[in-house]
Simulated scan of single mutants.
Amino acid sequence: MSWRETLGVTEAAGESHAHNPHNAQKTAMQDNSADSADSASADAEETASRLLEALSDACRGLPITPAAVRDALALEDIEDWRKGEITRDTLAVFARSLVQRREMERGKRPTHYTERATCKHCGPIWLWFSGEVLGCPWCWNRVADRPIPRPDAVRCQDCAHFQRTDHPHLGHCAKGEPEAIAGLWDTDRRYCERYLPHPEPGDNDGSAGSEYLTKGEFAK
Results as ranks from 00 to 15, higher is better:
G84T: 15
E85R: 09
P137T: 03
E115N: 08
R102T: 03
H112A: 07
K83T: 15
G107Y: 04
F129L: 05
M104G: 00
F129P: 00
Y113N: 00
H112K: 14
E103P: 04
P124G: 09
C119F: 04
H112M: 11
W128H: 13
P137Y: 04
D89K: 14
E115T: 03
F129I: 07
V99L: 08
E115P: 00
K108W: 06
L98N: 08
E105S: 06
R101G: 07
K108A: 08
R109H: 02
G135K: 05
G107W: 07
R106K: 10
W81Q: 11
W140I: 01
K108C: 05
I86Y: 11
G107C: 06
E132H: 09
C122W: 06
V133M: 08
C119R: 03
C136I: 00
G84Q: 15
V99E: 04
W126V: 03
F129S: 08
R116P: 00
W128P: 00
F94L: 08
P124C: 11
K120R: 10
P110V: 14
E103S: 04
G123R: 13
H121Q: 09
C122E: 07
P110K: 13
L98K: 13
M104S: 00
P137Q: 08
F94S: 05
R96M: 02
C122A: 01
A117M: 06
E115M: 09
R109K: 09
L98P: 14
A92I: 05
R82E: 14
I125K: 05
T90M: 15
G131L: 12
K120I: 11
L91N: 15
G131P: 12
A117R: 13
T87M: 15
C119A: 02
E85K: 09
K120T: 13
R88E: 12
G135Y: 06
T90H: 14
T118L: 06
A95I: 06
G123C: 07
W140D: 02
D89A: 10
L98H: 09
A92S: 15
P137D: 02
G131M: 09
S130E: 11
R116V: 01
P137W: 03
W128M: 04
G84N: 15
G131E: 11
P124I: 13
F94M: 10
E115F: 05
L98D: 04
R96Q: 08
Y113T: 00
H121N: 07
P124T: 10
F129C: 03
R88C: 09
E85Y: 06
V93P: 01
W126D: 01
L98I: 09
P110M: 12
G123W: 10
L91R: 15
S97Y: 03
T114Q: 12
R82A: 05
R101T: 04
V93E: 07
